[in-house]
């Protein structure tokens, strides 16, 4: 047994990890320059939503992509974040920063409570349960008088400030906030996927029984993934409430949101670091465009369109768009070696 054979791959592993991190920092820095070039309000709006859903889908990807527990009910966590933040601000004067943190923790606890029964379900049954639970949540909020019931909650207008996270005219600060949120979710994913937990999740996704035989407590792994995923989803929800400054049940807990969190990851490549962002970059502007042409969400036609798109991608390209990159990089490597 030679030491070189053992240590050389470790150093190259560390080097490739560092390279990934540097590339990410460059990408974040490049995105941060966009507002210098874009002043149009509509475009800025679309960019903010794109980054928000990149962050949300990145959070969804932790549970759905890496751990393989395909949730189609993340609108529930989004809603918990949005409602917690709105209620704390409007009724208690607690600024959005505190509201988002509270919403995130509450959401993680709810995910654990729901995971306890749901993680005993397998595959499609789990996904169906998440849809049903999120719809029940939506129904409850509709009838929740304290939370404004069907009328929702209107945020009071205040002068622009980072402290209250309210910006009425200039939306650029929101852009930087969601960029930060996206960067944090990316970095958290980056840190965890190459740790014990990340490997446990992937093993659980591929073969839970084999994982268990290698010392992985499958149930705990799923619970951990769910809690982290729900935490960041709720922070996104809290931000969204501050951003639109008015929420009602349909505008934050509609099934549409659950889809919009899952689809970018599926399109871009589940269980990959850049998949959700690439998917969001394609889907969200498209969703916004179809929405402004078709008018509102009422018809649901937009959902049909990107549902079809995702179906085509997952049939022809199961690893998503990032799968194409991965494969061509491998080919290039093979060529370089030959």
């Amino acid at each position: 047994m030679s030491d070189i054979a053992v240590t050389a791959p470790i150093t190259s592993f560390v080097a490739s990890r560092r390279r990934q991190l540097v590339i990410a920092l460059i990408v974040f820095a490049a995105i941060a320059l966009i507002p210098r070039a874009v002043s149009d309000v509509y475009t800025m709006n679309v960019l903010i939503l794109t980054l928000l859903f990149a962050a949300l889908s990145q959070s969804w990807n932790i549970l759905g992509g890496y751990c393989g527990q395909v949730s189609l009910g993340h609108a529930l966590y989004f809603g918990i974040g949005a409602y917690a933040t709105s209620i704390l601000f409007v009724k208690f004067g607690i600024v959005a920063w505190g509201g988002m943190l509270f919403g995130g923790i509450l959401s993680a606890l709810v995910a654990l409570a729901l995971g306890y029964p749901c993680f005993r379900l397998k595959g499609h049954y789990f996904s169906i349960a998440t849809i049903v639970i999120a719809e029940i949540g939506l129904l409850l909020v509709h009838n929740w008088d304290y939370g404004g019931a069907a009328l929702g909650i209107q945020w009071p207008f205040n002068p622009d400030s980072w402290w209250t996270l309210q910006f009425a005219r200039n939306k650029v600060p929101y852009f930087y906030f969601v960029l930060g949120l996206f960067a944090v979710t990316w970095l958290v994913t980056y840190a965890i996927v190459e740790s014990r937990w990340g490997y446990w999740w992937r093993a659980v996704k591929d073969d839970p029984d084999a994982a268990e035989s290698l010392g992985v407590t499958v149930f705990n792994s799923k619970m951990g993934a769910a809690a982290i995923s729900a935490f960041f989803t709720a922070i996104g929800g809290g931000f969204y409430a501050a951003f639109v400054s008015y929420i009602d049940p349909e505008s934050v807990m509609h099934f549409r949101f659950s889809l919009l969190m899952a689809l970018p990851a599926v399109l871009g490549g589940v269980g990959s670091l850049w998949g959700p962002a690439v998917g969001a970059l394609i889907l969200i502007p498209m969703a916004e465009l179809t929405r402004s042409y078709l008018g509102g969400t009422g018809s649901g036609l937009d959902l049909v369109i990107y549902g079809l798109l995702v179906m085509v991608v997952s049939l022809t390209q199961p690893e998503g768009i990032m799968g194409i990159f991965k494969r061509s990089a491998k080919k290039a490597d093979a060529k370089a070696e030959a």
């Binding site: 014990r196 490997y199 591929d206 073969d207 084999a210 290698l214």
Partner: peptide, 22 residues
Amino acid sequence: YQVPRSFDSMSVIENVTVGAFV
């Protein structure tokens, strides 16, 4: 396992690392 059950989305070394984490 009688029928090998590798983690197919993971590389060979990642498969083995799952075990080593114990």
